[in-house]
């Protein structure tokens, strides 16, 4: 029996009517959990007894005691929705809905089941579908249909990233050209003194590596700082615990791996024309 194996919880998405009643007297009312958002919006407290109805008019209410609050599981598909939700035991859901329609006592549209062991999900789904014909059972996680919009979003992000890298490279090259052009006379002087081209190139590349690594690390630090800021802003804006930006070590490493060779290549390309020139010609403006 699924009910015994799983912690039974039902989400009552449409809380039609909810009112707080005196909470001082002991009450036989069944316990419910209330979402933080609902608790805050109705200024409720744990221990309060509230009346819930599945009817929008508030007819046939039933009393429940708030046993605690919970943070709704972040769901990107419901971004922007105000999570005014309660969690209650399955018999309570059935009882609440059955009051408006006696047939409801016999039927439930959907049940979310949390398995104690997630590895059994596939087998449980198969067993359910076989045991109760007409029942559609599916995993909430790893659902390709639910992930589809995010796959598109991810591709869009990748496209933006590629365009950004190309534009940044052009900008970096232009910047390096200006930097190297400013050093034209210095390179000329060093060549006249007797510095070999290869030696100057070594200096230039070493400097390029230092600049590129410093720039890349600065970029990573900046993105981590922005990550916190962006997440805090949107979490506040949409009242959600969703994480909007996450800079993983892998992402940081990939960025550094792309940025450093790009920076070095840019400084190498910009220096090359300069190093090909004769020392004396470089000192002339």
């Amino acid at each position: 029996m699924i009910g015994r194996r799983a912690a039974i919880a039902a989400l009552c998405a449409a809380v039609a009517a909810l009112s707080s009643v005196a909470s001082s007297a002991p009450s036989p009312a069944p316990d419910i959990l209330v979402s933080r958002q609902l608790l805050e919006s109705q200024q409720l407290q744990v221990g309060d007894v509230v009346s819930l109805s599945s009817d929008t008019s508030g007819a046939n209410p039933r009393s429940f005691r708030i046993a605690g609050q919970y943070e709704p599981t972040p769901d990107p598909m419901r971004l922007g929705a105000v999570r005014l939700e309660v969690r209650m035991h399955l018999p309570d859901v059935v009882g609440l809905t059955a009051q408006s329609d006696p047939l409801d006592a016999e039927s439930v549209d959907a049940i979310n089941v949390v398995l104690a062991n997630d590895d059994e999900a596939r087998a449980t789904v198969r067993r359910l579908m076989t045991a109760v014909p007409g029942t559609l059972a599916e995993r909430t996680g790893n659902d390709e249909r639910r992930a589809a919009p995010f796959v598109v979003l991810e591709r869009f992000h990748l496209a933006i990233a590629i365009v950004t890298v190309i534009a940044s490279s052009v900008f970096l090259l232009a910047l390096m050209l200006m930097l190297v052009e400013e050093r034209r006379a210095t390179v000329g002087m060093l060549r006249l003194i007797g510095f070999r081209r290869s030696r100057i190139l070594q200096h230039v590349l070493a400097e390029g590596v230092v600049i590129a690594i410093t720039g890349a690390l600065f970029g990573v630090v900046l993105s981590v700082v922005l990550e916190g800021g962006i997440n805090r802003f949107f979490q506040w804006r949409y009242d959600t615990a969703l994480v909007f930006v996450h800079i993983t070590p892998g992402v940081a490493l990939r960025s550094v791996t792309v940025a450093v060779p790009l920076g070095v290549a840019a400084i190498f390309a910009s220096s090359w024309s300069l190093l090909r020139g004769e020392g004396i010609s470089l000192t002339r403006r």
Partner: peptide, 20 residues
């Protein structure tokens, strides 16, 4: 080029009008 650079470095000194 590299051999001329070495020669300049070790055996020839330069002084220019604009100091460099």
């Amino acid at each position: 080029d590299h051999a001329r650079s070495d020669l300049r470095l070790r055996s020839i000194g330069f002084v220019f009008q604009r100091f460099f």
